[in-house]
């Protein structure tokens, strides 16, 4: 097994914990929504799986995975932006 990828995984665990440890609770919902959008990167897994699909069943399931992943990533970023555009100072 490629140990580099494991090394990156371990580092990412610590970065993920560090980076949100100072978040005020008022931003928890947008943060959850934002990270929710980031795991929408599963769209790429769906694209790769569908690109390689050779049976109709695999194509159908891959197609569903692409739709799900795409809704996750686009919907996730848009809904987060909609929440955050309201966090502006009152003039």
């Amino acid at each position: 097994m490629d140990t580099n990828i494991l090394f990156i995984f371990i580092l990412a665990v610590f970065v993920g914990v560090e980076v949100i440890s100072k978040v005020p609770s008022m931003l928890h919902t947008p943060l959850m929504s934002g990270t929710n959008a980031i795991h929408g990167i599963i769209l790429f897994g769906g694209i790769l799986a569908l690109a390689d699909a050779s049976t109709p069943l695999a194509q159908a399931l891959g197609f569903v995975a692409v739709i799900f992943g795409s809704a996750n990533v686009f919907g996730g970023f848009l809904v987060t932006d909609r929440m955050l555009q309201m966090f502006k100072k009152r003039k």
């Binding site: 490629d2 990828i5 990156i8 995984f9 990412a12 665990v13 610590f14 970065v15 993920g16 914990v17 980076v19 949100i20 440890s21 978040v23 928890h28 943060l31 959850m32 990270t35 929710n36 980031i38 795991h39 990167i41 599963i42 790429f44 897994g45 790769l48 799986a49």
Partner: peptide, 23 residues
């Protein structure tokens, strides 16, 4: 990401996994 050797998926997924656990 591990299974299909996609580094971007490993990094993004792990960041969400660890920050989400802390949250």
């Amino acid at each position: 990401g591990f299974a299909i050797h996609n580094l971007a998926m490993v990094v993004a997924g792990t960041l969400v996994g660890s920050s989400g656990t802390l949250l």
